[in-house]
């Protein structure tokens, strides 16, 4: 009934499994004390800003229930913004407001919310409705990202983001996740989103998979995936690479979105990036890691620019 791939074959291909990721990638490279910086989006943002890393601008933070009453004043200067829980995940509790209609706030789908709705949302956020362990949380108000149109044809609802994995500061692999109708507009590969491997050298698609099977066109839009090119590629790779200095995490996932005017922005960092990037790229991480380790032994303490130059050269494809 099941068809297995031989472990020896996987090893030959350098595919990293869950156990190896946990032991050899996360435990060896990501000391626990550095986790809070990435697990808390507010801390991530503050640290990133300190290092002059481009992120959606932080407008304000609501930390206490007493501030909820002043929400109107807090939001007054902005006509569009995003409210999100600092400790949220999976998009929970993220409220996007794209405009104002008099006193009311407009969501992307046209639905209008009153100030009271927003206050309740923030209040819920503070008391931990959306945070992982149900602990008290902070609500961040940040600038709305105007997503680039470059990927318009490549996604069904949802916003495509670029995931770069950075190993000890060296970009090691990249992919893009495209929501499909099957994945219900979510960018989750095992729910049926399309994973597109991205050539680190030039930001072009190297292949795509859906449900672990190679696919050539987006199932909903029909766009040819081989034509997908990520704009501002060099800038993005550098941005991701510099996040190493921000977090000190040796195995780091950086989620990047592209704003029409501001260009690439770091949306989120992740200390436990998953392994499906290997499937999207049809390549394992282990050999690339070995190359980086070997390179680092010769060239310690490289600058982000040098690291990016190495990665782009070493891992370019086609």
């Amino acid at each position: 009934m099941f068809d297995f791939i031989k472990p020896s074959r996987l090893r030959e291909l350098g595919i990293v499994g869950m156990n190896e990721r946990n032991v050899r990638y996360i435990m060896e490279n990501n000391p626990r004390k550095f986790f809070p910086v990435v697990d808390d989006k507010l801390k991530t943002k503050i640290a990133a800003q300190k290092h002059k890393i481009a992120v959606p601008q932080l407008y304000s933070v609501v930390r206490e229930q007493s501030q909820v009453r002043k929400l109107k004043d807090i939001l007054a200067p902005y006509s569009e913004f995003v409210i999100k829980p600092a400790n949220g995940s999976q998009g929970k509790g993220i409220l996007v407001i794209v405009g104002k209609d008099g006193d009311r706030y407009v969501k992307p789908n046209g639905e209008k919310l009153s100030l009271l709705d927003l206050q309740r949302h923030v209040s819920n956020t503070l008391s931990g409705l959306y945070s992982l362990g149900g602990e008290n949380d902070n609500a961040m108000v940040e600038a709305l990202v105007h997503f680039t149109d470059a990927f318009k044809n490549f996604t069904y609802q949802g916003v495509p983001d670029i995931r770069l994995i950075v190993y000890k500061g060296y970009p090691i692999m990249a992919m893009m996740r495209l929501a499909t109708s099957e994945s219900d507009g979510k960018a989750n590969l095992h729910q049926g989103a399309v994973g597109v491997g991205i050539n680190l050298g030039d930001g072009r698609a190297v292949g795509a998979v859906m449900h672990n099977v190679t696919c050539l066109a987006h199932p909903d839009t029909g766009a040819k995936l081989s034509e997908l090119v990520v704009p501002h590629w060099d800038e993005q790779v550098l941005l991701a690479s510099r996040c190493y200095e921000v977090t000190s995490l040796g195995y780091l996932g950086a989620d990047i979105v592209i704003d029409k005017e501001l260009g690439p922005l770091i949306l989120e960092l992740n200390a436990r990036p998953g392994l499906s990037i290997q499937i999207a790229n049809q390549e394992g991480l282990a050999h690339r890691r070995a190359k980086i380790d070997a390179h680092m032994a010769q060239n310690p303490n490289e600058t982000p620019e040098q690291r990016v130059a190495f990665s782009k050269k070493a891992f370019a494809r086609g």
Partner: peptide, 9 residues
């Protein structure tokens, strides 16, 4: 994972 990564075969 021997099933998950089968596509690599």
């Amino acid at each position: 994972e021997l099933i998950r990564f089968k596509a690599f075969d």
